[in-house]
Amino acid sequence: MKLKELEGYLQDVAVFTDPKIKLEQYPTTPHLAARMLYTAHTTYDDIENKAVGDMGCGCGILSIAAAMLGSSYNVGFDIDPDAIAIAQENCEEFEIEMDFILTDLSAAPAPAIMANGEENARGPYEMMKGKLDTILMNPPFGTKLKGIDMVFLKKGIDLANHAVYSLHKTSTRDHILKKAKEWGVECEVVAELRYNLDKSYKFHKKQSMDIAVDFLRFEKKPRPEKRD
């Protein structure tokens, strides 16, 4: 499938009917979603036959794009049942199989250590670690809840078996590159894009605005082989 074709199909994905500002619900545009998934598929082969997780899936556009490009299993996480309901309808419309989990991704991953020395499980999805090949997200940028973008990103990197695709404000690039180094993952700025936000909320003064976003790809390094 060609990029333009994918973007065309994605025009029909329904968006939030009543976006919730505290959750920073802005629909990922068909243009951005198509660009992300097309690259993940054609350049990196991270989609076809893969198990794909979508963190803060909202109306499901990233997963729908993934499924159209041949992902084998899709699961979305979101805290908003209204968004999930729209995503479910979208999946029915597109005849796509996707599971959803109503859960809170905003809690900081607390490294609680259990008596046996293992890290405590803090989310219901801890067992998915290493089982989802690819994680997709367009996380909240943290304009309402500072730092939440990094909480999402860290969780995505923890869960992914191989790669994470995410969108972040370009202004946070240096910080993210530094964090990626700390976390021991490779981070590549795949593209710098414009995120065109239509006036979604009353506090927006302009009818439409562009913000600069980075399309980032993170790859987990294979564990170094043990030497005898």
């Binding site: 599971d99 989990i101 499980a121 219901p124 801890e126 067992m127 998915m128 089982k131």
Partner: peptide, 13 residues
């Protein structure tokens, strides 16, 4: 939810 997903969920209380 399919059983594959159930197979990856645990209690987190």
């Amino acid at each position: 939810m399919r059983l594959i997903t159930h197979n990856m969920l645990q209690c987190h209380v």
